[in-house]
Design a protein around this nucleic acid. Structure first.
Lengths: 349, 349
DNA sequence: TTGAAAGCGATACCAG
DNA sequence: CTGGTATCGCTTTCAA
């Protein structure tokens, strides 16, 4: 059986309180007493029981990170940084996947309220789900990514501006017919949408909406007409879907001047589809992505994309979460992380 | 303040025990009593306190997954599956990064012993140094990946055979000078190794050693001489390092007939370096990887690689962990997951 | 079937 | 500076 504070106290000939004082090192303990206790601690190979501590303190020392799709390399980068930076603050990290199911997002909020985690970093998919936010008492919570709300702390980049900047870059390269890949498969307002409206499957994530908006803005500013036929629908932002959908598009349409992919992962699939079709990038068409994942720079050709300081992004999220955790009533804050366009070979001839 | 079982009991006019019975649904409760309790539960928006439950039961309902480098897409796939499949079993997942530091592995083991997690899935880099073997009482533990031991349950693939099979495939394509990418940067037994021996930086992970062994076996069987100059050292298995090291290699050596990269991520960097050098794959040289990550199929050209059923792999790990968790004295078991070579365009002319 | 009460392990309050 | 003691919320004997 495992040793408890009581056992340690007995062996050291002191009270449990003193042991606790030594362990937590808050109060002053007489050096000789401290030595005796530490001796006993080592002798019994004492390990504190976190459940007990959590029950007493009301804190578990753990936070949760919830992302829509853990399989994406982008998710891996976020997970990597959150785990690394949270560890520096002495927090453990529990990982959850929402798989774009608002139900899971609900579950998470109550799990946090069950004191299993002290706080939650959530990357929500659907703006509509902010309904979640209006319900009940919330645990310390920080949203990452693109949601339009003021109830909860949030860190994000300016998706509209980033998409606009990237589109401008493509326009500056002389492109006019610029396709986007990653809009909803069932366009908003189309016949099929009514059935799904308000449901979990409502088309269009916040990110896709904002990026589409930025793309439209840039086109309008340049006086280039918006052509819905250039908006290639794709709900699951994974390479296999992108390759399929772009492959099909190529078979049925004239080749666009450029492809603006809503993530680098989509760009990867797009490059693959173009390669399969024997279309050379950047000679015959251009391709750009979004996120600047580690792999982008090693794609063939290297990918032009939207970059932001991911470490600063995550650091900000943890800062905000720390604020909320130490003061439940602190006003929600929003941090915007700057972005920039990284121009690589995929858009320069 | 949050509602507790006591509050619910009071509201429903029953004892805490009855509430507990309703919640855990083990014993039979009279339907009308059950109804009253459930009413109260809903009314007070009751959420159980996991710390208290954990303290009482000695289990937290959480497992930990520790990987050396969370940034790799391969890690993302493992994390994705573990989270998904553990969730089906009602377990939460805490993620840790060991960064090849045995110290972190130690911390993990004690964390497990602190009842913060009920079990641990660990991908050790270098078992010689790993905390696992230096004993002490171990928590329920499953190793994933390549370790030669019998103390602890383990799930793995046959790395030697897989590397041998892949090398054979390259030989069958007519290759003789086959380079490998991913061996230790400081070769074992070389002058520099002594300084590091036994330290965390001791060269060569288990995976790299086993894959190298399989490669050597295939060469020997084919009567092809082993040429150390064809073993390209790389410790951190990330694309940027691979691109750098292969780029340098190309500048200084004759082009090999093929590159056998020890992970798909390394292959990605290698393809990039070859592309930069203007060398066509598969026309001038072949490239193969290991792991069959999702992205491999969309590389340019699509990558030949070693595939195994990742879902079965993770499922097995969770099964083994479950065994250990329910019976601490169960004999350690080892599960080998079968592999196969997936042949794609990068090795077929 | 349900109630009363003990106790899991760590901490904080209040004395001394 | 240190000792006793109540307490966190839940589960689980033991009785009724």
């Amino acid at each position: 059986m495992r040793a408890t504070v009581k056992d340690v106290a007995k062996l050291a000939g002191v009270s449990p309180k003193t042991v606790s004082n030594v362990i937590n090192g808050v109060v002053f303990v007489r050096p000789e007493t401290r030595a005796r206790v530490e001796q006993a601690l080592a002798e019994l190979d004492y390990v504190p029981n976190m459940s007990a501590r959590g029950l007493r303190n009301g804190r578990s020392g753990m936070i949760a990170l919830a992302l829509p799709d853990l399989l994406r390399p982008y998710s891996a980068e976020i997970v990597h940084l959150v785990v690394e930076l949270a560890h520096e603050r002495g927090w453990g990290v529990q990982i959850e996947q929402t798989a774009a199911e608002p139900k899971r997002e609900f579950e998470l909020l109550s799990k946090a309220r069950a004191y299993l985690v002290d706080g939650l970093i959530l990357n929500p998919v659907n703006l509509d789900d902010s309904a979640v936010l209006s319900a009940g008492p919330l645990p310390p919570l920080v949203l990452i990514g693109d949601v339009d709300q003021d109830l909860v702390s949030q860190v994000a980049i300016d998706n509209v501006a980033a998409a606009r900047d990237l589109t401008k870059h493509l326009l500056a390269q002389g492109c006019r017919r610029i396709a986007v890949v990653g809009t909803p498969e069932i366009p908003r307002g189309s016949s099929g949408a009514g059935v799904l409206a308000g449901s979990a499957e409502a088309p269009g994530t916040a990110a896709s909406r904002l990026r589409t908006a930025g793309y439209h803005q840039a086109l309008e500013e340049a006086g280039v007409p918006i052509d819905p036929a250039l908006e290639i629908g794709l709900d699951r932002w994974r390479p296999e879907g992108a390759a399929t959908v772009v492959g099909k598009y190529l078979a049925e349409h004239e080749l666009p001047d450029a492809f603006f992919c809503f993530t680098d992962t989509i760009a990867s699939g797009t490059l693959s589809a173009l390669w399969s079709a024997g279309i050379a990038v950047p000679q015959q068409t251009l391709v750009a992505g979004f996120d600047n994942i580690l792999e982008s720079q090693f794609m063939i050709p290297p990918l032009t994309t939207v970059d932001f300081d991911r470490r600063a992004f995550v650091e900000a999220a943890l800062d905000l979460l720390g604020e909320r955790m130490s003061d439940k009533n602190a006003a929600p804050r929003r941090v915007m992380v700057p972005h920039r366009i990284v121009i690589r070979n995929s858009t320069t001839r």
